[in-house]
Simulated scan of single mutants.
Amino acid sequence: MNNPVPETNNPVRVLAAGDHFVVPPLISRALADEVREREVSVRELTLPWPLEAFGPVAEVEEASGSEDGLIEALADDREVLVTQMAPVTERVLESAPRLRLVVVCRGGPVNVNLDAARIHDVRVSYAPGRNAAATAEFAVGLLLSTLRRIPQAHNLLAGQGSWQGATYYTYEHSGLELEDLPVGLVGYGAVGSRVARVLCAFGAQVMVYDPYVRGEIHGLRVSSLDELLRRSRVITLHARLTPETRGLIGSRELALLPRGSVVVNAARGPLLDEGALCDALESGQLSAAGLDTYEREPVPEGSRLFGLGDRVVMTPHLGGAARAVAEKAARIAAEEVGRWVRGKPLAHQLT
């Protein structure tokens, strides 16, 4: 691929297309810190996410803002685009002939048409691992909240001034404690491995199913998903979403769990069949579920999940919502721009 670095006599022209999480000044400051040896001309653009939900834009998924707005911002021969959510479509790439590098401040460039980027000689890089610690912490918090009914008790006392939350102290309604609890992890990547370490510290009986991971793990490795499900009182999902894992946990899998088990998903919504989950919660096969991600986001009005009462804890995809994540994303992106400016190989290049 012919992607020359900019001429040393000219400033590096960058569009920092941030949003209300990875804010443009974070990107600009990270670039100034990283590319000290060169003048950098940064134009800032603020996209509406997360104040407005992301969604498909033209042929790309999970994007924020419009093609027209991005094309206008790139119009004065910007060579580098650093963004989290901008829709880098075929039309955008055709309209930005001087663009040579796109760095996406997230774990995967789903908002970039990679085929079109190859055709237009544009390198695409991303920021893996930026939210692994935050998501792992959130997953453990969601697990604890679901097991111990923390949000439900808070809503009764703080929201309604009612002491009826004390019913969660009755034997019938009391929650599960992590110590000695058989907890199954589906996936042992950057997030799952951190969750496993934390749960081991709590004294849980941690079991892991991940056919792609070799070497030592925290907890007991099991050879099949079915075995993990039969032996776990709680499962928490940490697998990547691929064609193979879409719908990984459905009616058959939920039926393998001991009755009254708990499911937590802070990974990707489509790993879990929501209809099957609702059936299992309504029948008592599951006693509770904790969800941060969903098959459709935002969750559509009229979803069965909203009628499950205190059997489900729901948060609006907040696993990565920590300030350090935005700071790490901007820093990783700036480091990639620095490598490109110096003519070095990119660390996280996809095209």
Rank of each mutant, 00 (worst) to 15 (best):
P11A: 10
L15M: 04
L15N: 09
A17C: 12
G18A: 02
G18D: 03
V22S: 02
V22Q: 01
L26H: 01
S28D: 13
L31V: 07
V35R: 03
V35W: 03
V35Y: 02
V35S: 07
R36G: 01
R36T: 14
E39I: 04
V40P: 05
V40N: 04
S41M: 10
E44T: 13
L45H: 04
L47S: 11
L51G: 02
L51D: 01
E52H: 00
F54L: 04
E59Q: 11
S66K: 01
E72K: 00
D77R: 15
V80L: 10
V82W: 09
T83P: 06
A86N: 04
A86F: 08
V88S: 04
S95R: 14
A96K: 10
R98H: 12
L99I: 06
V102A: 11
P109N: 03
N111P: 03
A117G: 11
I119P: 06
V122L: 07
R123P: 08
V124E: 11
A133D: 13
A134D: 05
A136H: 12
A136Q: 05
A139S: 15
L143Q: 06
L144E: 12
S145Q: 02
R149V: 07
P151D: 05
P151F: 09
H154G: 14
L156I: 10
A158I: 14
G159R: 15
Q160K: 14
G161F: 11
A166P: 01
A166Q: 12
G175K: 09
D180F: 06
G187A: 08
G187F: 04
G189C: 13
A190N: 13
R194K: 15
R194F: 09
R197C: 08
V198G: 08
V198T: 15
A201S: 15
G203Q: 11
Q205L: 12
V208Q: 03
Y209P: 00
D210K: 00
V213F: 06
E216N: 12
H218R: 12
G219D: 11
L220K: 14
R221I: 05
S223T: 12
D226T: 10
E227V: 14
L228C: 14
L228Y: 09
R230H: 10
R231N: 12
R233M: 14
V234M: 08
V234E: 09
I235M: 06
H238V: 05
H238Q: 07
R240Q: 09
L241N: 13
I249W: 01
G250V: 14
G250L: 10
R252K: 13
E253V: 05
A255M: 05
A255T: 08
L257W: 10
P258H: 08
G260V: 03
V262C: 06
V263Y: 03
V263A: 07
N265T: 07
G269Y: 05
G269V: 02
E274I: 01
E274N: 00
A276Y: 02
C278E: 15
C278N: 08
A280G: 09
S283F: 01
L286M: 00
S287Y: 01
S287A: 13
T293P: 00
E295G: 14
R296N: 08
E297A: 02
V299I: 15
S303F: 06
R304N: 07
F306V: 03
G309Q: 02
D310P: 12
V312M: 07
G319S: 08
G319R: 09
A322S: 11
R323W: 02
A324R: 15
V325H: 02
A330H: 03
E335S: 01
E336R: 03
G338Y: 01
W340S: 09
V341L: 04
K344E: 15
H348E: 07
T351R: 02
